[in-house]
Computed example of a mutant assay.
Amino acid sequence: MTAAIEIDRMLPGQTALIVAIDRLGLDPQTARRLHELGFDDGVDVEVIHRAPFGGDPLAVRVGNMVVALRRSMAALIEVELNGEGTGP
């Protein structure tokens, strides 16, 4: 079993499985929007790109979409990394 980390700590090219979302750390509208975009427990995600100078925002693939997430929001989504990949 792999230790859970937050999406904002992932590197480009890494894939992971969502294990928990801290919905209490989000306002209800934002929590609902994340759900509508496909961010739910058990969903695979991949970090595609991190912006330079602090990495905000992150481009994250969820399903067939690429979504830009602020680091503060990505820090509320816990994942378990798939495999040993550390990026391309």
Rank of each mutant, 00 (worst) to 15 (best):
R61H: 02
I48N: 05
A59S: 13
A20E: 15
A68L: 14
D22C: 03
G55L: 00
L11E: 15
V43P: 00
L26G: 04
D56Q: 08
I48M: 11
V66H: 01
A3R: 14
D27N: 15
M10T: 04
E80K: 15
L76A: 07
A3S: 14
P52C: 10
V43Q: 01
L26N: 06
M65T: 03
I21D: 01
A4E: 15
R9P: 04
A16C: 10
V62H: 00
H35F: 10
A74F: 07
D27K: 04
L24V: 09
A31C: 08
L24G: 06
N64D: 13
T30F: 05
M73F: 13
R33H: 10
I77W: 02
T2W: 14
I77M: 02
N64T: 09
H35R: 12
Q14L: 11
V19A: 01
R70N: 14
G54T: 04
H35E: 10
M73H: 13
N82K: 12
A20W: 06
R33P: 00
P52K: 05
R50K: 14
V60P: 01
E6W: 10
D44T: 14
G13C: 08
P12G: 07
P12K: 00
R23I: 13
V66M: 05
D8Y: 05
D56C: 05
R23Q: 12
D44A: 12
L69W: 02
G55K: 01
G85Y: 03
E84R: 08
L81I: 14
P57H: 07
L34W: 10
H49S: 10
P57S: 11
A68N: 05
F53N: 11
V79T: 13
R33Q: 13
G87C: 09
A74H: 02
D22W: 06
Q29R: 14
V79P: 03
D56M: 09
V62P: 01
F53T: 11
M65V: 01
A3T: 12
N82M: 13
R61Y: 03
A31Y: 02
S72W: 13
D56G: 02
P88H: 07
G25I: 13
L17M: 09
I7H: 00
P28L: 09
P12Y: 03
L11Q: 12
T86S: 11
D56P: 11
M10H: 03
V43R: 01
I21E: 02
L34M: 15
A68R: 09
G83A: 03
R61G: 00
N82D: 15
I48L: 08
Q14R: 04
V47G: 08
V45Y: 00
D44P: 08
Q29D: 12
